[in-house]
Structures are given as structure tokens and as C-alpha cells.
Amino acid sequence: MEITIREGGPDDVPAILAMLDSCVEWLTAQGRTEQWGTKPLSRHERTVASVVGYMDEGVTYIAEADGTPAATLTLTDAPGAYLSHLDPPGEPERYIHWFASDRRYQGHGLGSALLAHAAEETRRAGVALLRVDCYAGQDGRLVRYYEDNGFTRTDTYVSGTSWPGQVLARRL
């Protein structure tokens, strides 16, 4: 399988939402509903608005598998407002939003390739800090995935009343 990475745009929104829905379906099939629930994220107006908003604010990248959009993330200059209670890093950063992959391509390295691309784009911009946050509940597999891709744990937080989150950083 050939992996290529390109910039995304407004025409990619349906593919990105399909990737997110694929993740929800996969998580639900495993009984892991605490992260994103059971309803397709494409049906949540706030999710759609968030995806589009971050695309407008930053740069979206799409990893294609043999020409088919299969993974995505968006890089901006700051975390979302839901993390405004955390101390800022005190230096320029790039922040990853809406990192997801079509689960049909699981195990083919698309996510790792996209994270490496985000690190290279961050470095190319002269920025030495790349950060991301994620769901930190259940068995912590998602946090370990980021650690396996060069990130280290920094801040923990709780979103809403009980959604455990973890911020991770990668020095470049």
C-alpha cells in the first residue's frame, strides 16, 4: 500500500466525518463507548462545526492509502478552548486536532505516518513543540499510542463531569 500525505480542504469534510464515524463504530464494537459515545459524530452539529472550525484556523492533512483518504489531523497554533484552564506552554506550539483514521486501514501505519508528518511540518515552521490531547480512560491504549509515537504525558484534565483527558507533548 502506498501512503501519501496531502493538505486537506473543505471538499474533504465528508471523508473526515466518515473517518470519525468509522472510529465510533470500531470503538462501539469493542464496548469502548466512553470516548465518543455510540452515535456517529457526523450527526453531531457541534462536531461538524469543530472539524470545520479547526480546518479554517489551521492546516488539515489527509493520509491517503493508494489514493483513498484514510487518516486525518489538523494542526493549529493552540489547543481548543476546553483546555483554557491549563497553563500555556510559554512558547510557540503546534496543536493536533481531530486525529482519526478509517479503521479499515488499521495496522498499516497511516496514523504514525501522519503524526511524523505533523512533526516535520511543525519543525519546518521553526516550532519546537507539538502537542495533542486525547481520551485517557479505560485501559489507556490511546495515551500509549501517542507515547509510542514520541509524545510524553504532560497535563491531565477532566472534560465535563467525568471524561478523563491527557495532554501530551513532543519536543522537536
Rank of each mutant, 00 (worst) to 15 (best):
A118E: 12
M19A: 10
G111V: 00
T74N: 05
L20V: 00
T72Q: 12
E45R: 12
V158G: 15
C134M: 01
N149Y: 02
W36I: 02
S162N: 15
G31P: 01
A65G: 13
D139R: 00
G9V: 08
A100Q: 04
G165W: 11
S159F: 10
A71H: 12
G53H: 01
G111P: 02
A65C: 13
G80K: 00
D77V: 02
G67Q: 06
H97Q: 00
A128Q: 07
T33W: 07
H117P: 12
G126S: 11
G140W: 05
G8V: 04
Y157G: 15
Y82C: 09
R131H: 12
S101P: 14
L83P: 06
Q106K: 13
L114F: 07
R153C: 11
V59M: 12
H117Y: 04
Y95W: 11
G126D: 05
I5M: 10
Q138G: 09
I5Y: 00
L83A: 12
S42V: 04
V127L: 02
W163Q: 04
A119N: 15
T122S: 02
Q138W: 07
W36T: 00
V13A: 01
W98K: 06
A116T: 06
S50L: 01
W98Q: 13
M1S: 14
Y135D: 04
G31Q: 00
T161S: 13
L172K: 02
I96L: 03
A169F: 13
R43I: 11
A71G: 07
L41R: 03
L73D: 02
L27V: 04
E147R: 13
P14M: 12
L129C: 05
Y146Q: 11
F151K: 03
V48W: 08
E93P: 13
S159A: 10
C23H: 09
E25R: 06
T156H: 13
H97N: 01
G126A: 03
G111Q: 02
E25M: 07
R6M: 09
E121L: 12
E7Y: 10
Q106S: 10
